[in-house]
């Protein structure tokens, strides 16, 4: 572990100023991922600016029935918030599907979105990884990639500086992506709002960057806009063991039904891509159509037609298909009940 300084600021602006002057520094929230990466030598900040107590740790009402979630709200508190559980069940379910009770007590909402991939080539400094060591290649495409991306990845072969098949590990981010949440960010140039759609990026030709945030930008809150029909929503996570494992596939979905017709629908997939994957193809196929198993299956297959699996993760395509179909069937059954 590299030696580092530990700094605290009086307010968010002070923290932003501190990090603006420290090009190799990092913000410290709950530390549940960053500290692990520091111990592994994967993250090597020279300064940690502790922001855990600087941003809000409250969940507040927005005028449209939505919620503003302070960046410092612990995952456990957010999952237990009655308004979250009633208005956005998929959000509470996603949080409770992640990590362990201890980690959820410690992890913050803002930090959850900025987790790094758990790809074992990323977390092992002796292995090639374009995300950790740009230009070093990708060990995963020819090695262990059973739980890697099948959508939106870059695979130009193991030696290419562009290749990255990592997935984003957050469950919360998948639910927020389905809900069209917006991330409020404070940077050296002031405040801005980043839609969840634009926060995480696909690897493209630069796998080193997970998000579109610039160095020193601090997440202060997340706005979840009101969506009355999200009361019927679900987060279904498929994993290798009953708890404490990252998603092989996850589905965040909400559906608005008019009788047996899909009036509107939101679907995001986790465990499938470098970013939470909004299933717009499936949504478009479903909107205005019948809420039937056949229609759900056709929409899922249309979405996954873009999948480019590797030898050991091809199972994700049928797994995502059947999990999505079942989740939509459960929501529609709930709506009819």
């Amino acid at each position: 572990m590299r030696e580092f300084r530990y700094e605290k600021a009086a307010d968010p602006a002070g923290a932003v100023a501190l990090l603006a002057g420290a090009p190799e520094g990092a913000y410290l929230g709950g530390g549940t991922n960053l500290v692990d990466l520091m111990r592994l030598g994967v993250a090597t900040p020279d300064v940690l600016v502790d922001v855990r107590t600087l941003t809000s740790d409250l969940v507040e009402e927005l005028p449209d029935g939505g919620l503003r979630i302070g960046a410092a709200v612990p995952n456990a508190d957010l999952a237990a918030d009655l308004r979250v559980r009633q208005r956005f069940p998929l959000l509470a379910q996603a949080l409770l599907a992640g990590a362990s009770g201890q980690l959820r007590n410690r992890a913050t909402t803002g930090g959850n979105l900025l987790q790094r991939t758990r790809c074992t080539y990323f977390t092992d400094v002796t292995q090639p990884c374009n995300k950790r060591a740009p230009g070093s290649g990708c060990g995963a495409v020819t090695g262990l990639h059973r739980n890697h991306a099948v959508l939106g990845a870059t695979d130009e072969g193991p030696g290419s500086p562009h290749t990255c098949v990592a997935t984003h590990p957050s469950d919360l981010a998948v639910a927020l992506r389905a809900l069209d949440a917006e991330v409020r960010v404070l940077g050296p140039g002031g405040e801005r709002t980043v839609p969840m759609a634009d926060l995480h990026r696909l690897p493209g030709e630069d796998p080193s960057r997970d998000t579109t945030l610039a160095h020193g930008e601090l997440i202060t809150a997340i706005d979840v806009p009101g969506l009355p029909w999200a009361v019927r929503s679900r987060y279904r996570k498929v994993r290798d063991r009953a708890s404490y494992a990252f998603a092989l596939v996850s589905v965040a979905a909400a559906m608005d039904l008019d009788g047996s017709t899909v009036r509107d629908v939101r679907i995001a997939l986790g465990g499938m891509a470098h970013a939470p994957w909004r299933a717009t193809v499936a949504e478009d196929a479903l909107r205005g159509g019948p809420a039937t198993e056949e229609a759900f299956a056709a929409a899922a297959e249309a979405e996954l037609a873009a999948a480019r699996p590797l030898p050991d993760n091809a199972f994700k395509v049928p797994m995502a298909t059947s999990t999505l179909v079942r989740t939509l069937l459960q929501i529609s059954a709930e709506a009819r009940a």
């Binding site: 758990r118 074992t120 262990l144 290798d240 063991r241 009953a242 708890s243």
Partner: peptide, 15 residues
Amino acid sequence: ANHDLAEYHIAANAD
């Protein structure tokens, strides 16, 4: 390659 307890899975209590 999966040389830690995040990736080498052992049954959790819930299993």
